[in-house]
């Protein structure tokens, strides 16, 4: 580990200035549960670390008829500690419950999980399923991008040098909607997703027909995926296992996994289908109860 400078600005403007001035050898620190480990092992050697936890805009947590606004630094524990999020955005609270243990969840943020941009990050398939928009600020101003377009490669994303993620915005959830995230891990705790699937559905008033659905998939490609076809083919189909199986088959078509110490191509492809079915099943159950 090499020495570095540390700043903790209290305004967004100062943060942007400091980050932009650092010429790329600056790293943003939220919970630090990824960043500190990267620095410790020497994978990253920043000269300046900018802590963004004291910036008001990054600590917003608002839920109303417009939807959900989640500041980039808000911890996983605050997410699942919010009953409204647990009810309406269950996939996201499922993810936040899964990321690390309690100590990690008290520090780790959804923003950090997204910006770390790991293919197996547990919150990203849920953000995709819940149709999240990422609000980014930088020297050139503010811009927005869909969650599924945020990551570009393992550990890489669309943030330009000097930019930071401010918040995540998700649309309001109508009646008869539900969502779920689940992952496969070889153990029952302390593991990284071998495959993760987030699914969100909206049903008609009878609760029998799917009006729309969104499926996000993690750890089965270089970046988390939005399973567009699998999601769209569900529109108008009955909410039953047969339909889920169709979506699962379509989801398996788009994955491009690798063989590594966590799983094989065969395994990840197969389990993408299995988890898609299981995620949709729970999402529909939740939608019917909502």
């Amino acid at each position: 580990m090499k020495d570095f400078e540390y700043e903790a600005p209290v305004s967004l403007a100062t943060a942007i200035e400091q980050i932009a001035a650092g010429n790329g050898s600056v790293k943003v620190l939220a919970g630090g549960t990824d960043l500190i480990d990267h620095i410790r092992t020497g994978r990253l050697t920043p000269s300046l670390v900018v802590d963004v936890k004291k910036i008001p805009e990054l600590n917003v947590l608002e839920i109303n008829s417009d939807g959900l606004r989640l500041g980039a630094s808000v911890s996983c524990a605050s997410v699942y500690g919010n009953e409204d999020i647990c009810r309406d955005y269950s996939a996201l609270s499922d993810s936040c419950h899964i990321i690390g243990g309690i100590q990690i969840q008290n520090r780790a943020s959804v923003g950090g999980n997204l910006c770390n941009s790991g293919p197996a990050a547990d919150s990203i398939p849920s953000l995709i399923a819940l149709d999240a928009t990422c609000v980014i600020a930088g020297p050139q101003g503010t811009r927005e991008i869909a969650a599924e377009d945020f990551c570009t490669a393992p550990g890489k994303n669309v943030l330009e040098s000097g930019e930071l993620l401010v918040e995540l915005v998700m649309p309001a959830r109508p009646a008869k909607s539900g969502s779920h995230y689940l992952r496969f891990i070889p153990r029952n705790e302390m593991d990284i997703a071998v495959v993760g699937v987030g699914a969100s559905v909206m049903l008609d008033e009878t609760g029998e027909t799917i009006q729309s659905a969104r499926i996000g998939i993690g750890a089965a490609a270089p970046t988390p995926l939005f399973a567009k076809e699998a999601s769209e083919l569900l529109t108008g189909l009955p909410a039953n296992e047969e339909s889920f199986a169709k979506a699962a088959a379509a989801a398996q078509e788009i994955v491009t996994p690798i063989d590594d110490m966590r799983g094989t191509v065969e395994f990840r492809t197969h389990v993408t289908g299995v988890l898609t079915k299981r995620a949709l099943h729970v999402a529909v159950e939740r939608a019917r109860k909502s």
């Binding site: 070889p186 153990r187 029952n188 705790e189 302390m190 593991d191 990284i192 110490m261 966590r262």
Partner: peptide
């Protein structure tokens, strides 16, 4: 993380 000894949950 990736050398998986069983935890108490397993």
């Amino acid at each position: 993380l990736d050398y998986r000894v069983p935890t108490c949950y397993d």
